[in-house]
Design a protein around this nucleic acid. Structure first.
Length: 517
RNA sequence: GCCAGGGUAGCUCAGUGGUAGAGCAGAGGACUCAUAAGCCUUUGGCCGCGGGUUCGAUCCCCGCCCCUGGCACCA
């Protein structure tokens, strides 16, 4: 059986991770967890991109070997993703032998097929930055910016991949696979881009200029540069006997940022695969960016970046994940500010959900000795709540399937609020003061209904805030099933369960201590 | 310049050819199981601007303005 194969972009390890890196991994993790709960066998890959000029220079600047430098930064990225609860199945590093072997194999195959040729590359070279410059790097007056130092025109021999030969094939492929890229408008953007003729792709750097890379198998004086290194991770991680494993490949989704769609993932990658006789991925999921207040772009150089670990330390992993997924409409950009974060934290998590959990456990403890009673009647308030549950569940699942996670969360929180409303309607604290048998029936029914509704509500939140779901289930004395098909039915499985006396999931910030996990 | 996305309540955003919605923030109220939380009621909008199609447009068409991103062999 083929797995649902999901990947994220591999991160370039020349700096520290920020909220953008964190978002992409959390988003993909939510998809992975959702698919698993829906019953799919999931294979979820993340990793790091560790070769190239900037890494080589970064290591040199610190006076340490490149391998040591990437070992350090890769560990930093991996630690963040572990901390964020990213449930990856494999973590690939482009410096690993298993990856390099596949890169060489594919390059050799394409070389043998005549898809790669050697030619002269002429351009303007900055010795200080150790790179060729582009025409767009020029200042308006035609001169080169100061940071490049002395710029000289020079000719360099390199290897090129026959990208252009596949342009028509790619256009045709995109026209016949309208769902290749989500959201749709991105696919139009790619087709627009392809209206201009492609140039062949320079895929090498002379070793004297760049040492930190994978040597070309057919010419040891060169290393391969970027594309045939980084992109290949998606297949090298699942490689076996000259091809990606059939139970993994083609990938169901490459999750990437909009900045690396055109041309790498939408143009180079499908063509590279096609030329090598490998099927393209099924689809690309393209997300937007987090912007600062007023639409300002996040940037490390201006210091305008958000350290995800800071928020995680202060408010917990789940609060952070919840915010990312609730605020971002997948595919579009979204604003980030601490004020927005706090607003979500307080109103959704602390007040609506957290407080509900606490009061429900407390009431059960107080009025029912901490044991969930059996429901005894089904009147209008119960019927309404159950009907809302059915709608919420169906809509949330359908929205998740279309990557509308923010909307799914919104519906789910509406259901959580409805539980609060139900509790007010039944007012167990009043029923408890009555000795009328009818009131006692209603009291037991109310306690049973609110706990069951709570169990269902937090189950629907599991892909986004798995830690919270687990804690609530534990507090409810409930061991959840692995699949949603066995979990999302309104029932009486909690009857007789022994409850925890209370649980503060999201403490208010004034008094906040970081919740344990 | 070309292409794409966006311009709706103080804020973040939904939305539909037929009297404009949610959440948060603001105001008032009843309650007390609960994290001074929850519940009920409520204030608030020339739906970027100007034309057009239509019985009727926030939604369709045209033009314009503003914001964001892309325009490759950088990742």
């Amino acid at each position: 059986m083929k797995s649902f194969y999901l990947t994220t972009a591999i991160d370039y390890v020349n700096g520290s991770p920020h909220i953008g890196h964190a978002y992409e991994k959390v988003l993909t993790d939510v998809i992975a967890r959702f698919r698993r709960l829906m019953g799919d066998e999931v294979f979820f890959l993340i990793g790091t991109d560790e070769h190239g000029q900037k890494v080589q220079m970064g290591a040199r600047k610190r006076g340490i070997p490149a391998q040591q430098f990437v070992d350090n930064t890769a560990a930093e990225f991996r630690a963040l993703y572990d901390r964020l609860g990213v449930s990856y199945d494999d973590f690939i590093r482009t410096t690993e032998e298993r990856h390099q072997r596949v890169v060489r194999e594919i390059l050799q195959r394409l070389h043998d097929q005549g898809e790669i040729y050697r030619a002269e590359y002429r351009g303007f070279y900055s010795t200080r930055q150790e790179q060729f410059l582009q025409e767009k790097d020029r200042l308006p007056d035609g001169s080169w910016p100061e940071i490049f130092g002395e710029v000289t025109e020079l000719v360099e021999s390199n290897y090129f991949f026959k990208l252009r030969a596949y342009q028509d094939w790619l256009i045709d492929y995109l026209r016949t696979h309208e769902d290749f890229i989500f959201p749709r408008f991105r696919q139009k953007q790619v087709l627009e881009f392809l209206k201009e003729p492609l140039n062949d792709l320079c895929i090498s750097r002379p070793r004297e200029r760049l040492e930190w890379g994978i040597p070309l198998p057919f010419d040891q004086d060169f290393v391969t540069y970027v594309w045939f290194d980084a992109l290949v991770n998606y297949v090298s991680a699942v490689w076996s006997e000259g091809a990606p494993r059939a139970d993994r490949w083609p990938a169901d989704f490459h999750v990437i940022g909009k900045d690396i769609l055109v041309p790498p993932h939408a143009v180079y990658w499908p063509i590279m695969l096609h030329a090598a006789g490998i099927a393209p991925p099924k689809s690309l999921l393209v997300h937007g960016w987090w912007l600062l207040k007023g639409g300002q772009k996040m940037s490390k150089s201006t210091g305008a970046a958000v350290d995800p670990l800071d928020l995680v330390d202060r408010f917990g992993v789940d609060a952070f994940r919840y915010f990312l997924i609730r605020e971002m409409n997948v595919g579009q950009d979204s604003e980030f500010s601490v004020e927005l974060f706090l607003s979500r934290y307080n109103s959704d998590l602390a007040n609506d959900l957290g407080n509900l959990v606490n009061r429900a456990l407390n009431m059960a403890g107080r009025y029912s000795a901490g044991v969930v009673p059996a429901p005894e009647v089904l009147e209008e308030p119960e019927r309404e709540l159950q009907a809302l549950w059915s709608r919420t569940r169906d809509e949330a699942i359908s929205l998740c399937e279309g990557f509308q996670f923010h909307a799914a969360l919104e519906r789910t929180l509406t259901f959580i609020k409805a539980i609060n409303r139900y509790v007010e309607q039944r007012a167990p604290w009043k029923l408890a003061k009555s000795s009328e048998p009818a009131d006692q029936v209603l009291l037991r029914t109310a306690l049973a209904t609110m706990t069951e509704a709570l169990r269902l509500g937090v189950t629907l939140l599991a892909p986004v805030i798995p830690g919270t779901t687990a804690k609530v289930n534990a507090a409810l004395g409930h061991t959840p099933a692995l699949k949603w098909s066995d979990e999302l039915q309104w029932g009486t499985s909690l009857t007789g369960a022994k409850l925890q006396p209370g649980l503060v999931l999201f403490p208010r910030p004034e008094t906040a201590k970081p919740p344990a996990v």
